[in-house]
Every structure is written in C-alpha cells, then in structure tokens.
Design a protein around this nucleic acid. Structure first.
Lengths: 154, 154
DNA sequence: CGATGATTTCAGTGTCGACCGAAGGGGATC
DNA sequence: GATCCCCTTCGGTCGACACTGAAATCATCG
C-alpha cells in the first residue's frame, strides 16, 4: 500500500522547515513557508495553518507576523471576512536570498576597518589582508552576479 | 588624550566577534579569530588567549577545538614545549565562505524534490517553480563565480 | 618515576528563545 | 449592543547552548 501524495508532501515540508531552522528560522515558521508553497488553495487563514501544522495559535501568529514582516508571506483582509488570509509571496524570495549574500559580503566592512587600524604596520596586516582581499572580491562580484539574474519564469 | 591602537583593536575584535556571533559562531570563538588575525607575534598558546580575552580555559579549549576542526586555526606542537601554539590559517577562509555559499544554493535540492512531488499538477507547482528557478540559477552560477576567484595576494 | 605546567573534560549555572495555551481585544453579523 | 469568531498578546515552561571553574589527563623535564 503506497504512501499518499499528501503524506509525502508533509515529509517534504518537514525537511524544508528543518533546513531553514538551521539558518535560524523557527521551526514553525519554516513549516508555514513550506506549507504555503504547496497547499491548495493557495490562501489559508491562521486557524487553518494552526490545525494543519498542529501548532498553537500563538506560535502561528508570531511566525506569520515575522514572515509578513520579511515579505515572504502576504496578508490579505477582505471586507465581510473576519479571518485574514495568508499566502506565500514567492516573488520576495530573491530579496530573501539577496540579504543572505549581502550578509556574507558585509564582512568586508570589518576587514577594511581592521586594515585601516593596521595601516602603519604592513607586516602585521598580512593575515588580515588575505581575508580582506577575499571579501573585497566578493563585495564586487556578488552584486554584479545579482544583476545578471534572470526574471522568474512566466 | 588619544585612545591607543591596542584599545581600538580590542574594540575591533569585539565587533568582529559580534558579527560572527550572529552567524552562529560562539562569541569567544569569534574573539579568538579576530585576535589571531591581528596579534603580534602570530602564534599564541591557549593560556595566553585565555588571559588576553579574559575567557575561561575551558571555553578557549572548546572553541579552539572547533576552529581547528573547521580549519580556520592551525595547531602546532613543538618538541620540548608543553604548550601548543595556535595561529590563524587565513588561507582556509575561502573554504569557510564557500561553505556558506553552498549552504544557500543547497536549497535547490529541496525545491527540486518538491517539484517532483508536484509533477502531476503544474498549476499547483507554480509557486514552488518560481523559487526553484531562483535556486537553480544560483546553483549554476555560484560555483562558476567561485572558479573565477583570484588567488590571494602574495 | 615524580614533579611541574599545560590542556582537555565535565558537571553545573545562567541565559535565551521557541513554543504553548489562556486571556483579552477587535471585527462582523444579527 | 450582544454574540460569535478569530487573532494577538502575554505569562510560563521547556530545552538548548555558551560559559565557567575544578578535576582529570597528558606531556615534558629533572
């Protein structure tokens, strides 16, 4: 007897959430993301998410607030409906990734400052220089790479 | 009365450690990295680090073990010296950064699996497809970018 | 082989953050 | 304006992890 598609999707959502948990996103936040990426229909209320993901209403609320804040989820309210509907904002994902790349390259600000502090002593600055050059290169190339990013498929 | 260079370097080390603390590296580990990048002479014993950074011997030991493990610090023992000497391995920094980039691109494995699970339903796969394309592009371009990385300065 | 000096191990402490669930507040409908 | 949901807020619990300091371990030298 085969495992149903929904069951396999649940397992996939869990893997998805686990990955982002390692990057500091709360487990429940990751589950919401994974779920909203594949659910049908695309919009869900907080109460539905709470039930589907077996998480407390408080956790759902907190995490939705966070996800809406970073732009990955969109909140929609409708007249005549007390329940707000949430959906994934997949277009915002590139901004999300871009922030990660920026975070890596931003170390260059630090290494640059360090080089300045050691400017009178080239010998002593050698170790930092190696690191600074690496980040300097990244700071130049990553934004350039990002420019060449193709538009998302229609 | 001006602030001495060493004082400013201490402040810089603290900023350096704070940055990597946000990325999950323990504060003391970050301090060790920053300190070993700029100290003179370049090699230090665990006891010296403990004193300079005002951290317990246990913390220093744990963090050095971790940093040696990921390759950012090199341990050297010498005959006739009971104290091992540690120094920064600035050449390993590129591997450190590369692992970060790989971690970002590795999401493509997840999105790809998800696409497979939704293969029978293109409509439903649309949201994931947008995300998958982004990571697919990254998975292709980041390694290519890395190839063009220049050697560190002599 | 014992003494010495250094490092590693380990149990204990404190902090921080995710999560829960009950209480409170805000709309919408009647 | 009363009722009914739904969402958010908030106190409390739990587990994870960084850090400490003392004890155990290890290496060197006399």
């Amino acid at each position: 007897m085969s495992v149903g598609r929904e069951t396999r999707l649940s397992a996939w959502i869990e893997r998805f959430a686990a990955h982002f948990a390692e990057e500091g996103i709360p487990l429940i936040g990751g589950r919401i993301l994974g779920y909203l990426l594949v659910c049908q229909p695309v919009e869900r209320t907080a109460a539905e998410l709470s039930q589907e993901l077996e998480a407390s209403s408080g956790s759902i609320s907190t995490n939705l607030k966070y996800l809406v804040n970073v732009g990955l989820v969109t909140k929609r309210t409708r007249r005549g409906r007390q329940a707000a509907e949430y959906r994934i904002n997949e277009k915002a994902w590139s901004g999300f990734v871009q922030r990660k790349l920026d975070a890596i390259a931003s170390v260059q600000v630090l290494t640059e400052d360090g080089m300045r502090l050691l400017s009178g002593d080239p010998e002593r600055a050698m170790r930092l220089r190696t690191v600074d050059h690496l980040y300097g290169w990244l700071s130049a190339e990553l934004p350039a790479l990002w420019e060449r990013r193709p538009a998302s498929p229609k």
